[in-house]
């Protein structure tokens, strides 16, 4: 199993641990990745606001690069915003006139986009390309006794949802159970984390992040598959607590970090110390569960 890999900007900065844990887990599962050389920003939520064409050209630049080395491979991305931008551009390229304009722009980069690459989200690959049995086989330290609240966010499943329901996604359930965890289902699994509103309209953004955190609180931790969601849910818990007038504290882990823990991968490879809300309670719970099993 091999993919062309587009890391995305956040995975070089705030979400470096998402990159590292993804690479470690996919390697353990025997998945091969070839990183796209010379990739640039997908345009995030910004390029399309600056200009409609720029919003298609920024992702298209990367899709065109991926086509050059495709060899039938899909383009894997771990960020839901990158994923949505790539899917938007694939859709736009179906219109020959639009594709022509995109290529007139890409000319200055010496690139041509044909609309042949299929973007894939990490969530999709983990749930649908990799056999659940293969994941179960890798589990060395089952997450027994750990309750996990799945959180998909918006753009993982909306507006493009070829692999899951856009209102009530289920991709993570079997996976988390395969890791030995108990799944806490809640009403905000595909609600919005507040995205950049946390910066531009903080009160509104925090109320959105707060609603997700509150819904997940009965669990021991939250599992996420998007760096934007992660920043908002992990880093802003103090501010959310202030806004809600009560303490809201729950570790937020990237799904591959949880997988890595269950696979028994070295903790430094998973970047758990980088989380703003410490993962200690999660580690202690797993540790205690193992000691309890050993003692009985």
């Amino acid at each position: 199993m091999k993919y062309t890999f587009y890391p995305g900007c956040s995975q070089e900065g705030t979400a470096l641990e998402y990159l590292h844990s993804t690479l470690a887990v996919l390697e353990a599962l025997g998945v091969e990745l070839e990183e796209l050389e010379d990739w640039t920003c997908c345009g995030a939520s910004v390029a399309a606001v600056m200009s409609d064409l720029l919003g298609a050209v920024m992702p298209a630049r990367n899709l065109a690069l991926a086509e050059q080395i495709a060899d039938g491979r899909d383009l894997l991305t771990v960020c839901s915003a990158c994923y949505t931008n790539f899917c938007r551009t694939v859709e736009a390229a179906a219109d020959p006139k639009r594709l022509q304009t995109i290529n007139q722009a890409l000319e200055v980069e010496g690139l041509t986009y044909h609309g042949t690459i299929r973007p894939r989200h990490l969530m999709d690959v983990l749930a649908n390309d990799i056999e659940l049995e293969a994941i179960k086989e890798k589990v060395q330290r089952p997450l027994e006794g750990l309750t996990v609240a799945p959180y998909y966010g918006c753009q993982t499943v909306r507006p493009f949802s070829p692999f899951d329901d856009d209102q009530r996604p289920t991709s993570m359930i079997a996976l988390l159970e395969a890791l030995g965890a108990t799944v806490h289902r809640h009403a905000r699994e595909a609600s919005c984390c507040g995205t950049s509103l946390v910066m531009t309209k903080q009160k509104v953004g925090l109320s959105m992040a707060g609603a997700v955190l509150e819904a997940a609180l009965p669990a021991d931790c939250i599992a996420v598959v998007c760096p934007m969601c992660h920043v908002n849910l992990d880093s802003y818990q103090d501010k959310v607590s202030g806004a809600l007038g009560k303490p809201v504290r729950i570790p937020v882990l990237f799904l591959p970090q949880l997988m890595g823990l269950a696979f028994g991968l070295p903790e430094e490879k998973l970047g758990l110390r980088r989380l703003v809300t410490p993962a200690r309670p999660v580690l202690e719970k797993i540790h205690n569960a193992h000691h309890a099993t050993r003692d009985t």
Binding site: S45, A48, V49, M50, S51, D52, G55, C154, Q155, R158, P159, S161, D166, Q167, S191, C192, G194, T195, S196, L197, K201, V204, G205, M208
Partner: peptide, 27 residues
């Protein structure tokens, strides 16, 4: 105040690309 969650767009019974329209208004 739109955070691009696309909820209005996928739920619109007339199938109008509402979130995309907001992006055009911002532009």
């Amino acid at each position: 105040l739109c955070s691009l969650c696309y909820q209005c767009q996928v739920r619109c019974p007339r199938g109008i690309p509402l979130t995309e329209t907001i992006t055009r208004l911002k532009e």
